[in-house]
Design a protein around this nucleic acid. Structure first.
Lengths: 339, 339
DNA sequence: GGTTAGCACTCTAGCCACAGGAGTGCTAAT
DNA sequence: ATTAGCACTCCTGTGGCTAGAGTGCTAACC
């Protein structure tokens, strides 16, 4: 791979990313001032195809990048643009609102990223299991219903309205919740869940039932469900490779399977602060073999707890997406510093 | 409109609903034992077209129903099937879970309806404005952050994490919230919002700031946003009339504009317990002129507070959808009796 | 020896003509 | 009033054809 081959490959992919049409030698020679003739480019392109970086849809068409070609482009060739300061400001503004639930940040992030990139965006929220119990409160909704509110210290909140147990009144339940919170505040939710299996944890006969309910309910706390927020899914309809409804269905259907998405982002992306790119068949899920996924991680209290991610056609604006995600995930981590 | 015309129109629409192909006189005569020849049917069909109930895509094609034809079908012709008792049981089971937030019911409903009908489903939650304040609590998330939880007596809950004000500690905020709840419990949220404009409501100098924050926050409570839950939107991709990505984009794009959807369901559907059907251009929104919308209302405390609704191609399984929605909205109203 | 002009070759997309088929409307017979 | 028959219309699918884009190869060039 000499410099000229790299130059040609990079230019070709740049062109294909915006045109979505196979790129021929003539186009390359004319449109971009490469200083060499189309014949030379043809020779080089034949080499690049032999090396596996390019493909030909059919004999008399131009070339398109192969998965391997995209991979080389992402790893070696693409030029990262600077993120405009107005974009950064926009993100900072959004994150500086006086709202502090983690769920809110997740939604904001997904929304902004899909708008900024014009691709669908997926954001994975921190796992509840790793967070610590912040507080539990009981509220009275009406005469027969109470609302349990459980919060982690990092700002994840879960509500559950339940009937008031027959043999208790509100004060009692409130007192119980207070005791529960006093006993377990600061304990990781995961440990709390484990308690359920430990019968010794419920001392008082009287409150046995509700105490167990509280624990049972904790165990129920959606640890794997509902962690995934999807935004801008309709963006995908804009790209010509998805003019076929069947493809759209495959991809969007996949994106709605939260567990699969979480698995994809969790397992394949290394726990690093590097942006990670999955191209086409590199994905373990064949539903998105026509797509590329770009993933960045964000941190809470110094630990990586979730991902911000973009999905689009393999012909994706990698440079723009990568820098955008880098910036957003960094800002998100910063915005979550209070937690 | 004699009986035979009605019979022909009804049969033709029944056929078109499943086949999605223009229906010819021969098909009608052969496939369904109408006891008359195709020539007679042709004459009748010509009449029906003149009356505006049928259309011809082109001269040598069969007929398809016009909007007016569907309207007549829905109002007069269609045969409502019985809802299977297993289906009813499934819905009752789902609604009998020991969970009682209204938001949960809304999601369940949308999910179930879209599965049962195989169309996208939209459910509108009760307006917050009409509900009454149930309780307010303040929770401590961590040293600098507090979580306000506001609930209506009907089980709608809203959380907001905010920084602890500089000049207050948690006890003070907690006491304040307690006072606030004591003062305003049972008051409609709408009235609470109006208070914001009334400067006399804040007596105590000391707590002026937070008191106002609480009120301001109430006013912020998404009264119009977020009322709309959409489920099964990908179902629409299954129908041949949406093989064109542009159409899909128009319709799904519309469904994501919550305010428009709410407006559609609120304004056009009468406040009755009758199921209401909007066919094609009867809708004020041209984005869904290729679609029909079926809407049922549900009740909370004897008042109609929201809608359960299905959207699909004009060639919709009206009979099935109408009976399903009737059943589901009834069960939903029943399930919300505790509130 | 690398580069390039030139040329023959290949393959697709688009166009046109054509035939088959489905369905109609009309007429005349029942 | 109904229906069989028939001419007519229009869409759809097919096949052949051409134009154009792009390639690979060869021979000339620097």
């Amino acid at each position: 791979m000499d410099a000229r081959k790299r130059r040609i490959l990079g230019t070709l992919i740049d062109d294909y990313i915006v045109s979505a049409e196979p790129v021929g030698s003539r186009t390359l020679a004319k449109k971009y001032g490469l200083g060499i003739s189309s014949a030379t480019i043809r020779n080089e392109m034949a080499d690049l195809e032999e090396l596996g970086f390019l493909e030909q849809p059919h004999t008399s068409a131009g070339r398109i990048p192969s998965d391997r070609g995209y991979r080389y482009y992402v790893d070696e060739l693409m030029q990262r643009p600077q993120v405009g300061s107005d974009t950064v400001n926009r993100v900072r503004m959004a994150f500086s609102a006086p709202v502090r639930e983690i769920a809110w940040f997740i939604h904001q992030t997904a929304q902004m990223v899909s708008e900024m990139t014009a691709y669908p965006s997926v954001v994975v929220a921190p796992p509840v299991n790793d967070a610590c119990l912040g507080d539990i409160r009981v509220m009275q909704l009406n005469s027969g219903t109470l609302l349990l509110v459980v919060a982690t210290d990092s700002g994840m909140v879960e509500n559950r309205a339940v009937p008031l147990p027959e043999d208790m009144n509100f004060e009692q339940v409130g007192w119980l919740a207070h005791e529960f919170a006093r006993e377990f505040r600061g304990m990781p939710i995961k440990e709390l869940k484990d308690r359920i299996l430990d019968p010794l944890s419920s001392d008082e006969e009287r409150y046995h039932g509700l105490w167990e309910s509280l624990l049972a309910w904790m165990s129920d706390w959606r640890s794997n469900d509902d962690r995934v927020t999807l935004a801008g899914s309709l963006n995908i309809l804009k790209y010509p490779e998805f003019r076929d409804v069947g493809k759209v269905e495959r991809v969007l259907g996949f994106l709605q399977r939260e567990q699969a998405v979480e698995q994809l982002l969790n397992q394949t992306s290394p726990q690093s602060d590097q942006v990670h790119v999955i191209i086409g068949q590199e994905s373990p899920f064949d539903a998105i073999w026509d797509c590329s996924v770009v993933t960045a991680t964000y941190q809470l209290r110094g630990h990586i707890v979730g991902q911000v991610s973009v999905i689009g056609p393999k012909r994706m604006q990698y440079a723009h997406v990568v820098t955008t995600l880098e910036m957003v995930s960094e800002e998100l981590s910063r915005a979550l510093k209070w937690a």
